[in-house]
């Protein structure tokens, strides 16, 4: 009798688990679905009351309108350049520094590492005005370099890769050193290849946050041809105040590149973010 009721309550739990997971999934997916459906409706249909769910007439001009009102080609390139160089800088410089902090002995190590830790705790807004003024002073606003600028080095990346190197036994490096590798070769040929998972995680972390960044691109590049997808979208919002079908089409254009990458590297994305988590 008792086991019977236990089994019953377990089955109830399973049903409830699926119920909540599926209901939650619907809530998570619905806004995306609504974005797609709205982008396929004419302006008139989008403002019908009550709203139609599927478009009565599939209307593709919204995509054309979004493409003609924003230079999406340039936005893709600018965003791509910004993400690419921020990722490269984060990997190269953070690997070097992370390795030195984890495995090498040198004077000033603790003080310098404290600099890294303190920066990690600071919100980026505290740097924005002076960073902008530095660029403005040398006439480098409205450029690709300006988009990359705050991401030239990464305190978080340095900390994160230091942790990765800490996890590698020092004996491996010492053996390479005894085999005749110099310090650089030991790092580059032996130790660096062992941090692949962490580098992948850092890549994803850096790319996702650079892509989402809004304030910096908005401040530093006001020329529409120099904007990123995020800041461009903010401009589109100003142009098409209430023409939501066009805004939805533009949002879809802005989301597509990262969504495609996510569909392909879904596991790496989630596990990478879980690994870098806590930042």
């Amino acid at each position: 009798m008792r086991t019977g009721s236990m089994q019953g309550s377990r089955r109830l739990f399973t049903v409830l688990t699926y119920f909540f997971l599926i209901a939650g999934s619907v809530l998570m997916v619905f806004p995306f679905l609504w974005m797609i459906l709205t982008s396929l409706k004419s302006l008139g249909e989008s403002m019908q009351i009550p709203p139609t769910f599927f478009p009565a007439v599939y209307y593709f001009n919204n995509f054309k309108d979004a493409l003609t009102s924003l230079p999406f080609g340039a936005l893709y390139i600018n965003t791509g350049i910004m993400v690419f160089f921020r990722v490269i800088c984060a990997i190269v410089f953070s690997s070097m520094a992370g390795y030195a902090f984890a495995k090498l002995r040198f004077k000033g190590k603790n003080v310098l590492f404290t600099l890294v830790l303190i920066q990690m705790m600071m919100p980026s807004q505290i740097f924005v005005i002076p960073q902008y003024e530095m660029l403005a002073k040398v006439g480098l606003t409205e450029s690709h370099f300006a988009l990359i600028f705050p991401g030239l080095v990464s305190a978080f990346g340095t900390f994160f890769l230091r942790q990765a190197y800490m996890g590698i036994p020092s004996e491996i490096g010492e053996a390479a050193y005894l085999d005749g590798c110099n310090q650089w070769q030991t790092f580059y040929k032996v130790m660096l290849p062992l941090t692949g998972t962490s580098i992948a995680a850092l890549t994803i972390f850096t790319a996702v946050f650079a892509y989402a960044d809004l304030m910096w691109p908005l401040v530093v590049n006001t020329d529409i041809n120099m904007m990123t997808l995020s800041s461009g979208l903010a401009t589109l919002k100003g142009q098409f105040m209430t023409n939501y079908p066009v805004l939805m089409a533009g949002s879809l254009f802005a989301m597509v590149p990262m969504l495609i990458l996510y569909l392909i590297f879904q596991r790496q994305f989630i596990e990478g973010i879980a690994l870098t988590g806590g930042k």
Binding site: M35, V208, S231, S251, M255, Q266, F269
Partner: peptide
């Protein structure tokens, strides 16, 4: 993957919809 979806979308695009 579904619950994680908003993470890979720029807040600008999410806010729009």
């Amino acid at each position: 993957a579904i619950y994680f979806l908003p993470m890979v979308c720029a807040p600008a695009a999410i806010a729009m919809v």
